[in-house]
Design a protein around this nucleic acid. Structure first.
Length: 475
RNA sequence: UCUUCCUUAGCUCAGUUGGUUAGAGCACCUGACUGUUAAUCAGGGGGUCUCUGGUUCAAGUCCAGAAGGGAGAGCCA
């Protein structure tokens, strides 16, 4: 019977006959196979007696060959591991031509591995990243399910282009070489599949709001698409987003929920895969050593995560945040490239100063000027700000954006008109304000940014299996 | 999209003021060794110097353009 390596390495049972299957990481000294099956970042040491083994089989034990080994699991006779498998039989399930296989048992650059994303799962780094990604996915569902949230599948294809969250990918079945035209000469979308123009979703929030007006507590967790020409280490054209929406919550409840959720899922992932956290912690420390002293991160990965769990997030209003920036040494020494005054949309350098220099922990900034925020955010009594919140994380920037929603029909309609959002087309959204409206709030969490935060990976393209970015749709 | 840097062997990189046949480590192949931990030792094979054009007696090296990639920025999650 096949047993997984993670189970064997617990070392609870020895002197048993077992079968193990996996991929060869290295074959040392014609005797020792480091075997990995993805259940853990640790390898099982398989010991072969090369004098007794068929030589043609020995030659086929190459890096990344897939093999099945049967034999006896014993206490290790050497140092470096607690148990090892003494092979009776080794069966080659899949050969791997050592001359052509691009991965070697050595350090590769992340850029190179990105070009062979179909094989990078087989490395220690990506093994750890994707096990943690899985734990975070499950941890998020667990957190919400334990609190009786309802998971809603919001649509992936959307006809609404009024959400204003960014450029959209068009969905069409029209022949692009022979587009039907209207009398005015525009493309005639009435002949398209849905009888109107349609796009991939940029957010499930509006649909989540509809569901929250019946189930009270809901969340979405699905793919999201933005056709922005963004070339950065924190943007993808296809990414996953979590969007909880809760009836009767105000902005403070919303911030509490976000903070609780982040802490819960980070703790869950750390407890589920301590070895992977250890590995990535060491990897990051190694990487930091290459940098000049003044560019090094202040905390190691584990330090950072533990600090996050043990401390409350800092909460400041936008107005207070601007005041902090204006009083900062960085501002007085003219270190900021962009101007600071009340009303600006804070730039990366400002957010990073607040999070990394001033507070040195995650910060929840609330009550932004209404002119820099979306139409659906609840207008505050001061007439200038809205009940918005952004959570800024060290090293990542904005990880969560949310708000209390405008539940008052007249205020919402007025704001939509000011911002040129077509109210007729959005009748279904406005209906919730017509029929039994109530205060409610929610937020959007960029899932890959969370994975970046937990794994310490600097580039978002290294925390999703097959990244989609401008000019890149390989695999 | 903007700024900036990079592109030399399968990988990581060196290559002097432009000057014979372009190097190293790892990987691979052959052999030795056999309790190794990215095993070690000896030998060997492996190159359209990203592409296109230009300057020059001579270009990996200088100039121009293109492509790809990194970092930072904008937009955002």
């Amino acid at each position: 019977m096949r047993i997984e390596i993670a189970e064997l390495l617990k070392g609870e049972k020895t002197d048993i006959e077992i079968t193990v299957m996996g991929w060869v990481r290295t074959f040392r000294n014609n005797q020792f196979i480091a075997l990995n099956d993805g259940s853990t970042n640790h390898n099982l040491q398989v010991v072969v007696d090369f004098n007794a083994m068929d030589e043609t089989i020995l030659k086929r034990i190459t890096t990344s060959a897939c093999i099945s080994v049967s034999g006896k699991l014993i206490k290790s006779q050497g140092k470096g591991q607690t148990v090892e498998l003494v092979a009776d039989t080794v069966e080659i399930l899949g050969d791997s031509d050592a001359e052509k296989y691009p991965l070697q048992p050595k350090k590769h650059s992340l850029e190179f591995l990105r070009e062979i994303a179909h094989l990078r799962f087989r490395t220690n780094t990506f093994g750890s990243v994707f096990r943690l990604r899985n734990a975070l996915i499950f941890g998020i569902h667990k957190f919400f399910q334990e609190q009786n949230f309802l998971n809603i599948h919001s649509p992936i294809i959307s006809a609404s282009d009024a959400e204003g969250a960014g450029e959209m990918f068009r969905v069409t079945t029209l022949d692009l070489n022979k587009l039907p035209k209207t009398e005015q000469g525009d493309t005639d979308f009435s002949q398209d599949f849905f009888g109107r123009s349609s796009n991939l979703t940029v957010s499930g929030q509006l649909e989540a709001e509809l569901a929250a007006m019946a189930f009270t507590k809901v969340y979405t967790f699905g793919p999201t698409f933005r056709a922005e020409n963004s070339n950065t280490a924190r943007h993808l054209a296809e990414f996953w987003m979590i969007e909880p929406e809760v009836a009767f919550n105000d902005l403070k409840d919303n911030a509490d929920l976000a903070e609780d959720m982040l802490k819960y899922v980070i703790r869950y992932a750390m407890e589920k895969h301590p070895d992977d956290i250890d590995f990535l912690d060491a990897r990051l420390a190694e990487e930091e050593k290459q940098k000049p002293t003044n560019e090094r991160a202040e905390f190691g990965l584990k330090e950072k995560l533990n600090f996050m769990l043990e401390n409350n997030f800092e909460r400041v209003t936008y107005t207070e945040a601007i005041e902090i920036l204006l009083q900062s040494p960085a501002y007085k020494k003219k270190k900021f490239q962009y101007e600071v005054n009340w009303g600006i949309d804070m730039q990366s350098e400002h957010e990073r100063y607040l999070v990394e220099k001033h507070f040195k922990k995650p910060v929840i900034v609330t009550d932004y000027p209404k002119d820099i925020k979306a139409f659906y955010m609840r207008q505050n009594e001061d007439g200038k700000t809205v009940a918005a919140m952004d959570i800024l994380a060290p090293g990542i920037g904005e990880i969560i954006g949310g708000s209390q929603r405008e539940e008052r029909l007249d205020k919402l309609e007025q704001r939509m008109q000011e911002m040129h959002i077509p109210t007729e087309e959005m009748y279904w959204y406005l209906d919730t304000r017509r029929f039994g409206t109530c205060k409610h709030a929610g937020f959007g969490l960029g899932f890959e940014r969370l994975v970046q935060f937990v794994t310490g990976m600097g580039n978002i393209r290294d925390v999703i299996p097959f990244p989609r970015t401008p000019k890149n749709c390989e695999f």
